[in-house]
Simulated assay, not measured.
Amino acid sequence: MTTTATRPRTLDLLRLTLRLDAVVTGANGAAYLAAAPWLTDLLGVPAGALRGLGVFLLAYAGGVWLVAARPRVSGVATEVVVGANLLWAAASVAAVVTDRFPLTGVGTAWVLLQAAVVAGFAAAQLAALRSR
């Protein structure tokens, strides 16, 4: 049973997880765009791919921020974010397993860490959504 006293906290938690996702994703995208030539050697991902990922991540971050900014956070939109996050996490692991890029040791660790963080966002968002 959800009381009115817990609803605002749950909604705040959902907004917080969405906003945190947007900020972290946007920062990651901005770093890929701004530092692609330097990150290539560190991670083993071509600069062009990093730039493309950066643009995508910035656009995605903006979309997630908009979901959180609505007066009433949409359950359907949140589920789309959760699904996209899970897809990103799975694709990240698949990129490592299939040697999609010639990742360095640091690059492999980074991609797997990123997958774990994104999956964590999805889990937190889903838990907050279900408890509201």
Rank of each mutant, 00 (worst) to 15 (best):
L86E: 13
R72F: 13
V45A: 11
T17W: 14
L86Q: 10
T104N: 03
L42R: 14
T108M: 08
V93G: 02
G44D: 09
A122V: 08
L39S: 06
G54C: 07
Y32C: 15
V117M: 06
A91W: 13
A90N: 09
G62V: 07
A122P: 02
V76N: 03
L129A: 09
V117S: 05
A22I: 01
V97K: 09
S92C: 11
V81S: 04
L43E: 10
L58Q: 12
A89T: 10
V81I: 05
T98P: 04
V23I: 15
V118C: 04
G62F: 04
W65P: 01
W38S: 15
A91V: 04
T104C: 10
V106H: 00
T108V: 14
L33T: 10
Y32Q: 14
D41Q: 12
A35P: 01
V24N: 01
G29H: 11
G63I: 08
A61S: 14
Y60L: 11
V97T: 13
A36S: 14
V117G: 02
Y32S: 13
A77L: 15
L86I: 01
V23F: 05
Y32A: 14
V97Y: 05
V106G: 00
A90Q: 09
D21A: 09
P102Y: 01
A34K: 02
L57W: 05
G29T: 08
A35Q: 13
V106P: 00
R19V: 14
G105T: 14
R19F: 02
V82R: 03
V97R: 14
L50T: 10
